[in-house]
Design a protein around this nucleic acid. Structure first.
Lengths: 196, 196, 196, 196
DNA sequence: TATGAATGAGGGTTCATTCAT
DNA sequence: GATGAATGAACCCTCATTCAT
């Protein structure tokens, strides 16, 4: 090995992923030109291919790594919370907070599922399902314990996630309300929505 | 609208809008090729320009006409409902129902705002704001009457709309639950979310 | 039909095929750039695609149409010749003559078989086999009549065709010998090679 | 030759020439990617440049060394043969046999003349002419001795060489006829073609 | 209205080659 | 000698759009 791992190339790759996420977020995956991406990173278009094999592979890398981080962070946020109500609060606080601070990745992961190859899409959908199942299990536990009013598990799961994910479509860091206030507002609405 | 209603080409134009909406929904606006659209309609690419001036104009036409119909239908659905709770129920029932039956138009109107020219986008954003204001006013009335628990008007408006709009990302007509059941579930969640 | 058939487009297509044949002959199929081809024809690169679907399709069109013309012309040249010796003379005269006057097409058809897609290659190989079979049948008839010395039908067929096809690698119209003289020389060698 | 014989990298260089010959034979020189070549040899693309200076130099090395070996081997095969007929038999036997066993090199040397730089091409053409002159001299001697029927020296030389070189376009080691049988068939045809 | 052929820009991708490590 | 990352040019091809017919 003539090169130290994690040196020049890794930094370039990170820059590509960051700029790629931003450009996809702003223009959509199909509308993002690799020429533009290369320009933002400061390399020639062809040099991008030292770091990914195809534009599609870059999208998959961005989306998959986001979904994996999302699930990992969620599990960390749920640690130590046992009671369904506590777990629901932890979930809602984590989800709404995470979607404020990483709204570009979140938006890309949600809106560009359609641009993924069938195979890649299937992999990402699996990760999404695993994430949603965390909420579903919390809702089930709360309902079975008579604490939550949940008429339909699947629908409620989707509805709560949609409600909070919507944040990333309008949130601006410099906005009227602080992140903490927004989190609190959403946690409260989630709790009320399931009658907790 | 560039075409006179009822003229020979009106049918072709309708076919273009329908196929265009479907293609944008499936591939995104930038990724929709006018060649493909022409093929689906059964004409040559050049012939499309007898019906619209630019690809951008077609998008605007689709989005604007959707937003106008949406608002018009909402107002029809609200007619006769006076009490805030009744009006909220009417809104939620209309919105969730409409987003099930027109999920392609809805998705396009929501996700392709970014593909609109600044001028066109401003016009559509105005229409969206007008639509959202209907809900905001309902929530304000309910809150002022001491009927709803609404901590922040804007945020609650966004949250409720997001919750219901999410339907069009997973809804399938042949799914487990009927449209009526889905509407009821969402109306109930909306009501609970504002403590009504 | 708004355009008269065989008008502008057909002329462009013919120019593309002619320039394409010349460029493939000079540089090889893979080494022929469509930019260069377009420049020689006097159109933009993208305009080429109004006339063929892919570079591969253009090659196939050139090779296939050459092979079909070759076989048709051969059959015309054989008409009226019955005796094996007469038919062999007719074949050799036609083949050597044709390979002098169309050496570009011939070279392309022979040397770019490898650049054809498997499916297209199969089609061209079939045409080639049909052409070779004409000579094989002549040799068989002459051998069976005790007129030719043919130790192996297939090998002799290949050898005679190779001998004459080689002409197109060195022939220049302005060369030392006239076309007629060259034809006579090759016909004589062919006849002697089978002891006729 | 850029490399010292017997050095460590000599084995790699041999592997490069062998894989290069095969790839050029299969895809043509222009269509052979150095990336692909590197992959077949098992090194990174950049490493190839420790063994040759440019892709063009590799082609020249392959073609020139083939032509030199060809001529050397021919001279060895002619040693001890004095009578024109014997020398012609020796030439035909050598040429047809050699073109069966080295059909990849032969094909490359014949078909990629056009890919050589003018300077390199001139050098190779000289080698080819030297090779052809061997046959030409044999034919001249036979003709002058009244043993061969040769109407035109140049044309006959080309024709006989083409006839036998054609072998490498269809020959397969596992084919119907053995190498010895094929050699005999071609020697016989050559002899008959010059009336010997 | 519709057509087919054209434009000019730009798409993703691959190329031979270089060079610090 | 080998590596991986870079270059700059070029690849085939598709794009939205125009316009004479």
């Amino acid at each position: 090995m003539a090169r130290t791992l994690g040196s020049v190339g890794e930094k370039t790759f990170e820059a590509i992923r960051a700029a790629g996420t931003r450009l996809i977020w702003r223009h959509g995956f199909e509308a993002m030109s690799l020429r533009r991406l290369a320009a933002e990173v400061g390399v020639q278009p062809g040099s991008l291919y030292n770091h990914f094999e195809t534009k599609q592979a870059l999208l998959f890398d961005i989306v998959r790594s986001h979904m994996e981080t999302l699930t990992t962070r969620l599990d960390e946020a749920l640690v130590g919370h046992v009671a369904p109500r506590d777990r629901l609060i932890a979930f809602a606080a984590f989800h709404s907070s995470y979607h404020m601070t990483r709204r570009m990745q979140v938006y890309v992961a949600n809106s560009e599922l359609r641009s993924l190859d069938p195979e890649n899409r299937a992999a990402v959908v699996d990760l999404r399902r695993a994430y949603e199942r965390r909420l579903e299990e919390i809702l089930r536990a709360g309902r079975d314990a008579g604490l939550f009013r949940v008429d339909d598990l699947k629908i409620t799961t989707f509805a709560l996630i949609s409600m909070m994910t919507g944040i990333c479509e309008w949130y601006r860091p410099e906005g009227r309300l602080s992140e903490a206030e927004l989190v609190r507002l959403h946690v409260d609405m989630v709790l009320r929505a399931v009658g907790a």
